[in-house]
Amino acid sequence: MSEPSLAIRKFSDLANPTRFLALVAIVWPWLAGLTVCLFAVGLYLSFASVDDYQQGQTVRIMYVHVPAAWLSMMCYTVMALSALGTLVWRHPLADVSAKAAAPLGAGFTLVALITGSLWGKPMWGTWWVWDARLTSVFVLFLMYLGLIALNRAMDDPTRAAKASAILILVGFVNIPIIKFSVEWWNTLHQPASVIRMDGPTIDPAFLWPLLIMAFAFTMLFFTLHVLAMRNEILRRRIAVLRRHAARSAGEAA
């Protein structure tokens, strides 16, 4: 893989899966290493930071919960951009990117939900509150699962990519509406006593570990995304090889 033709000169050169794979082979150990370092620092700071005077130890859940929630939204944005790539530029790697991101997004959203629920039990006295944020994240989770189900239901990857791209974009346009309506619904029903995460200010003692953890989670996402894309490309190559094998067997007979 050392031919000069494989060098990436323009961004559009990434369109070539072979070049992309070559790039991934170089980049992913660095990404993974950076992720590990960030997590080491972030986790250390998270556990070393002082307890919140109100929330006590449970404030540490926030260091996982907030980054996961942030990623659940960023991942959908990545998918929406990929969907544009699929529909507008018909970029085969965009198909792969959207498909690879969906399970990751679902995973991070699930983490956000579970940690939110764990945090809610001591804070609110219950595992689940129909709080505006929790509810909209839950709806987002359902949308991720629907996308995964759609992808699995179609056997032709190109068509599955196009269908899910449209669904992703429809969902993307709708997310603000859903969020807005859930908030409306919530103010209508909500008892006023629920403690909200967003206090007036966050003390810097909490902010730093939070920022580093958010960065670590983002890097984790990119590492996993790039590797998942690589796996998907390899999977498609295997499918092509199998089809070739089937056809050449037919010709030999």
């Binding site: 709806v139 359902l142 949308m143 699962l145 629907g146 189900a149 759609l150 239901a153 669904l167 429809v170 969902g171 709708n174 509406i177 859903i178 807005f180 309506s181 859930v182 409306w184 619904w185 209508l188």
Partner: peptide, 19 residues
Amino acid sequence: LVSILVLPLAIPVLIFGVS
């Protein structure tokens, strides 16, 4: 599948209708 895909998107309609 259609129901699964559409129901989350229809939540706003339900919310404002009932409200």
